[in-house]
Every structure is written in structure tokens, then in C-alpha cells.
């Protein structure tokens, strides 16, 4: 299958693309089946990953092992390299690319997901070791049409610039709401210091988090 941009007569914005989002897996078919959706299709339906490439399709990776991951409430059975991290599995096999790789060593926080409700660095988790855990990614928090209050607050407060660290920031911020963090800005700053924003949107990130906390 051709890349979408070659297939379409006109290039799409991400804004347009999201409304007809296709989830292409490397294995192909499984993802393509869900592709399509008309322009007006509800985004929530498409923000789900495909029900995963069936193990046979991904067997293109020699030596792959079967792994079952529970992500955003869905169970995915996939074949991955035995060394694959949760981060790479989300991005490369499940095409849940909202979770970002920034350093691959637990030094930036871009890959933050929730593991059984707690925020962790998904780059430091072997997929094979987390088959019984509930994983929540940014895709499981909200959608462009139905933003989580924290996502809406980030939009309102301009809590980003380039947006690359934003998924991790929001996953940390959502988790923070249930953590014992002091009421003041300094406490929020410390609690969010595991998420580096090289654009330096820290003041607005803190404002977004505080806005949601004050709402609660």
C-alpha cells in the first residue's frame, strides 16, 4: 500500500488527516482494514488502535515473540522483538504514536505512560514483562473532539510550543492530580521536573495544571 500522501490527490493537514486517520502497521492488512472512515466519523472510534496486527502478520520480524498488552482498555496480541520496550511496541507495532521517544534512557519523560494508574517511563519497560498490567497512553486520555480537562487546559494556557513533549507532560499532569503534591506552584514544578520541555513552556504548563486543580 502506498503512503497516504502519495495516494491522496492533495496533501492532508494533520487536522484533516485525523478525521480520516488510518492506522498503518508495518504488517499492513490489519491496520488498513480500519482505515477509511469518512471525514465526519467520530474521532473517538478512530483514536483506538487497530485491534492489533495478528501475530502471523508481524512474523516478518525473525525471532519475534508473542506479547499480549492491555492498552487503553483494549487487549492487543502482537509479535515483537523480545527486547522491545513498551515504548517501541506502542509506537512501532501498535501505531500508538502519541507516546514519544525523546532519549530512550529515562532522562526526559517524553515517553510517560500510566502503568496500573501510575506514571512511568515506557522506554524502561520490556514489553514482555508487562503483559498483565493496564497501560494507559495519551490516546486513552482524550481525543481532539473530546478533550480531557487537562488537555483542554493545555490548549487554553498554551502549555506547549512544538508539542513533542506534550503527551508526556499531560500524562504526568493527569497522574499528578492523584498524587500528594503541594498546592503551590513550586511543588508542581518539582513534580513535573521529570518531563523536559526544551521549548521551555514551563510557566504555561504549570498554569494549565493549576487551572485543572483549582477546578476540582
Amino acid at each position: 500500500m502506498a503512503p497516504i500522501d502519495e495516494k491522496d490527490p492533495q496533501p492532508l493537514t494533520s487536522l484533516e488527516r485525523i478525521s480520516r486517520r488510518v492506522f498503518l502497521t508495518r504488517a499492513g492488512a490489519a491496520g488498513v482494514a480500519t482505515a477509511t472512515a469518512a471525514v465526519a466519523a467520530p474521532l473517538s472510534a478512530q483514536a483506538q488502535a487497530p485491534t492489533a496486527a495478528a501475530p502471523t502478520e508481524a512474523a516478518a520480524v525473525p525471532g519475534a515473540v508473542p506479547v499480549t498488552l492491555k492498552v487503553n482498555g483494549s487487549t492487543h496480541r502482537v509479535m515483537v522483538d523480545p527486547r522491545a520496550t513498551v515504548l517501541d511496541t506502542l509506537r512501532e507495532t501498535l501505531s500508538l504514536t502519541g507516546t514519544k521517544k525523546g532519549c530512550d534512557h529515562g532522562q526526559c519523560g517524553a515517553c510517560t505512560v500510566h502503568l496500573n494508574g501510575r506514571r512511568v517511563n515506557s522506554c524502561l519497560l520490556f514489553a514482555t514483562m508487562h503483559q498483565n498490567d493496564e497501560i494507559t497512553t495519551i490516546e486513552g486520555i482524550g481525543t481532539p473532539e473530546k478533550l480531557h480537562p487537562m488537555q483542554a487546559a493545555f490548549v487554553q494556557e498554551d502549555g506547549y510550543q512544538c508539542g513533542y513533549c506534550t503527551s508526556g507532560q499531560i500524562m504526568s499532569a493527569v497522574a499528578l492530580l492523584k498524587e500528594p503534591v503541594g498546592a503551590d506552584d513550586a511543588s508542581v514544578r518539582e513534580a513535573l521536573s521529570g518531563n523536559i520541555c526544551r521549548c521551555g513552556a514551563y510557566p504555561n504548563i504549570v498554569a494549565a495544571v493549576q487551572a485543572v486543580r483549582h477546578m476540582a
Binding site: 498503518l24 508495518r26 483514536a47 509506537r91 504514536t97 482524550g142 481525543t143 481532539p144 478533550l147 508539542g163
Partner: peptide, 18 residues
């Protein structure tokens, strides 16, 4: 903003192909 906050903005390495 709604794309960047939901992980749906497509950055370069987010592109996967068969």
C-alpha cells in the same frame, strides 16, 4: 492544540508504512 494534546499530531518518526 487539540492534536498536540492528544498525541494525534503526526511528527516525523510517527510515520509507519507497510
Amino acid at each position: 492544540g487539540p492534536l498536540k494534546t492528544t498525541g494525534t499530531a503526526m511528527y516525523t518518526s510517527d510515520h509507519n508504512f507497510p
